[in-house]
Amino acid sequence: MNTKRITKMALLTAVALILFTVEAQIPAPVPIPGVKLGLANIITVYAMFALGPADTLCILLVRVVLGSMFSGAMISLLYSLSGGLLCYAVMLLLRRVLSERQIWVCSVLGAVAHNAGQMLAAIAILRTTAVAVYFPALLLSGMVTGLFTGLCAQEVLRRLRKA
């Protein structure tokens, strides 16, 4: 592992963590548990297309673990981890079949998978299926936020490639 790669990964992890922490300060737009902008997803999508799967997984895992520690709620680690890993798996499958201009598609489906994973974790942790009524709303919010973060990531990729 060369220094440049490590530096890149560390930097991206730091940015992801900051986005994560900044976002935690913004109140959720709707009072549905699990709905959030998911700004850190920009980094995941970016890394997936700019660096590759292995590096992305490292960044994702470090961000999820440290993020949970920073927010002081270790319980959120389980939600983030199950969501994050499911999101990662979906992106991994999609990255080869999508063109440069379709990166947002990857992000949308990734975010949907992320929220689905969170919901499954919530059902397991709360030991009640009562929360499942939120499922469609969570998937929808995943599509909207995934679109936003996906377009951001696509734009970042385009601009950084130019630079």
């Binding site: 530096t7 930097l11 730091a14 940015v15 922490t21 935690a24 002081g72 950084l160």
Partner: peptide, 23 residues
């Protein structure tokens, strides 16, 4: 380009004052 990102990261980190204090 990465330098700019780093600067941005540092700035944001300072802004948000490292997490919310426990209530």
């Amino acid at each position: 380009m990465y330098k700019r990102l780093a600067a941005l990261a540092l700035g944001l980190a300072l802004l948000c004052g490292c997490g919310a204090a426990a209530q």
